[in-house]
């Protein structure tokens, strides 16, 4: 395993030992190595520097179509834990871990709260939700009048904003998502269960002494 670390860390800044990453997450060592295959492919798509830039992330999400997307930007910002404008392998694995089918519901709810708290104020505010609704209309072919948007906002805040102070706090969000569990569907990626079969080439690149399953 020391071998893996020393070789990969030369080419991949911030690279962490797969055994260590496996110990911190729901992934096995083999699954971390399979994720490394995915990481290598994304991080070399524009500049082969061993880090994922926002442009590379969007290219991977939208399959080579250049798209500016509020939500993809938000997700990238949450992957960019060190706030350096790029994502290293350790952060890539730790954030994907929240999307694992075995990750806790609490972690998934917390992640969505941060995702939708666009301004990072600790509250999901009405103007932020309006901004996201307008973004979704721009992205899709859906057409909703301003009155309909305000109606959706009224209905949503009536249900979610329990103390009716015009913003959704973390505990209100927990209650709201518990009543609307479909909102967490985006937070579970079944792909993560099959990652070693999706990227079997990890076996040829493994530098871990023994592949744990």
């Amino acid at each position: 395993m020391g071998c893996f670390h020393s070789t990969a860390s030369r080419q991949y800044p911030g690279h962490e030992d797969p055994v260590f990453l496996a110990s911190q997450t729901a992934f096995s060592v083999s699954e971390v190595e399979a994720l490394f295959e995915l990481f290598k492919s994304i991080s070399s798509s524009v500049i082969d520097d061993g880090l994922i830039s926002k442009e590379e992330f969007q290219l991977a999400l939208f399959k080579n179509k250049k798209k500016e997307n509020l939500f993809a930007n938000r997700i990238f910002d949450l992957f960019d834990v060190k706030r350096k404008g790029v994502v290293d392998f350790g952060d890539f694995v730790r954030v994907l871990n929240v999307f694992h089918p075995n990750a806790s519901q609490e972690d998934k709810i917390d992640f969505t709260f941060k995702l939708y708290d666009l301004d990072g104020t600790g509250y999901i505010e009405r103007h932020e939700v309006r901004q996201m609704l307008i973004a979704i209309l721009c992205e899709s072919e859906l057409k909703l009048s301003d009155e309909m948007i305000e109606g959706i906002l009224d209905k949503t805040f009536k249900e979610a904003d329990v103390d009716q102070d015009g913003k959704i706090c973390r505990s209100e969000w927990h209650q709201f998502v518990s009543k609307n569990p479909q909102l967490l569907k985006i937070m579970t990626l079944q792909y993560l269960r099959d990652i070693t079969t999706t990227f079997p080439s990890f076996v040829f690149h493994s530098e871990v002494d023994e592949i744990a399953t």
């Binding site: 994907l96 309909m148 209905k155």
Partner: peptide
């Protein structure tokens, strides 16, 4: 379900930008 009958976050969660599954599709 009509979009007007959905809550705001149901609509938002349909964004393609939130579908990380596409990272795994080759």
């Amino acid at each position: 379900q009509s979009p007007a009958a959905m809550n705001a976050f149901e609509l938002i969660s349909t964004s393609q930008g939130l579908n990380l599954g596409s990272l795994f599709e080759k």
